[in-house]
Design a protein around this nucleic acid. Sequence first.
DNA 1: TTGCTCCTCACGTCACGTGAGGTGGC
DNA 2: TTGCTCCTCACGTCACGTGAGGTGGC
Lengths: 272, 272
Amino acid sequence: MFTIGEFSKITGLTIKALRLYHEKGIIEPHAVDQQTGYRYYNHQDAEKARVIRLLKDMMLGLEDIADILKDCSDDADAVGILERHRNRLEDRINDLRKAKGYVDSILNSEREAIAMTKDNSSEIVEKHVPDIRIASIRWKGRYGDTGKYFGRLAKSLARHLAGRPFNMYYDEGFKEEDADIESCFPVREGREIKAPEGVSIRSLSGGKVVSIMHKGPYEQLGRSYERITSHLKEKNYKVVAPPREVYIKGPGFIFKGNPKNYLTEIQFPVSE
Amino acid sequence: MFTIGEFSKITGLTIKALRLYHEKGIIEPHAVDQQTGYRYYNHQDAEKARVIRLLKDMMLGLEDIADILKDCSDDADAVGILERHRNRLEDRINDLRKAKGYVDSILNSEREAIAMTKDNSSEIVEKHVPDIRIASIRWKGRYGDTGKYFGRLAKSLARHLAGRPFNMYYDEGFKEEDADIESCFPVREGREIKAPEGVSIRSLSGGKVVSIMHKGPYEQLGRSYERITSHLKEKNYKVVAPPREVYIKGPGFIFKGNPKNYLTEIQFPVSE
DNA sequence: TTGCTCCTCACGTCACGTGAGGTGGC
DNA sequence: TTGCTCCTCACGTCACGTGAGGTGGC
């Protein structure tokens, strides 16, 4: 016979828990002193405690545990309860995974934004960009709808994203309405990705680009475009592919943020 | 301006939740009628509600949500909180996975036990068993310690198990103490499995066996051994590998069950 | 007598849901 | 006047943990 303290040490269950289990009829101590109310446990109780610990390792609730202890004397008897429990566990895992997916996509996005914010002078530079693999949606409409398409890409491809989103502009000049735009997200190499409806997965050639970092709201992008196009003319460069606008830092998933802090890189692919 | 009911429909948050958020200072309605206590919400409140829904989708707690709404105006500001949250989510996922692993191993075990209980006549039969891949521990001691080794295998290889556990006996006759025993669990083919300390993963040849199904407690296995060995003699079979005892139904993970219901198949591999 | 162990309340946790009981506006 | 909407308590959830305040045995 053990006092509750001794029994607690033997079984690894806390005293508080043991008292609760008594109250709920899950482990009734073998004897209770009428005078003092002291609980006394024996070896049979210890066996029950072992089972409870096992079942708690499976994260079963006390109600299920009580049912199992009451109705089962063989593992096979518990299959029904365990099957239900297994499904609930699976559901909870899936919910958590989904939540973690959201959080991860924000964190990745922010981490990349920070890394790419390092070199943010506003000077015009010439550089080489590598080939990348992208997931993209090509659409027609107004510039301001861009966020919708990035949202769609991010939601359906969260796990695969690997870089900052960008737009490619297929029109010759600037178009207010009905612009021909491809919204792109870089995705990881290697893995097989099944493209959602309306999304194309393909690889995009790199090469020489003339680029400028634009700081501030999108309404002021025009200024940077002017600067870069006059540079192109000056140097007599030939533009060989649609210009890209890479959104280093823009509206976030959660907050819009302050447009003054937006960072956008404009790239014009030119011949070597 | 919206009443709480309208605002609830717009935002998808319940009225009860909205009242709670008010109380906690998470969304203060734009105006409250002093007379009636009616809450009135506006478009700014709706923007806050959108953010809350996003954050709830990430399974953030109200306290974190309150902090984010108070301190952040850009996704980047929330990175610290989100990182902590991500880790907690991951921990919870791992805990749940572990729990699910336990449950799964019991369910698989029981399902297989049921499937293999179908043909349970007590007649001696001759049959062919296929090659199988096993995880095993070879040890010396007394028969009764077997459970310990199966427990160890089951715990460390839960996800890979694919069949009923069995022992192989390497001694010539019966040995009370210091018996030379290999405790085995069939494991899934294909996947790479890294063997835990003391466990070997290998493949075991099948072939012709003489087998008998023993019903009842292990103490009575002797009888079935007698029957099968006299059969072997009668037919003049040559035993070509250590006999196996397959525990179709024995003590469970949770309960010992009733030994009267135990089912054990004894197999003697013989030459073709 | 001093610690130690045990006892029984009662309250807190987390994000609401479920009433009860009542009031104001159409 | 009848519904409908809104209000404020108060209680329940789940498995204990954390005291408070007190008693019995060495």
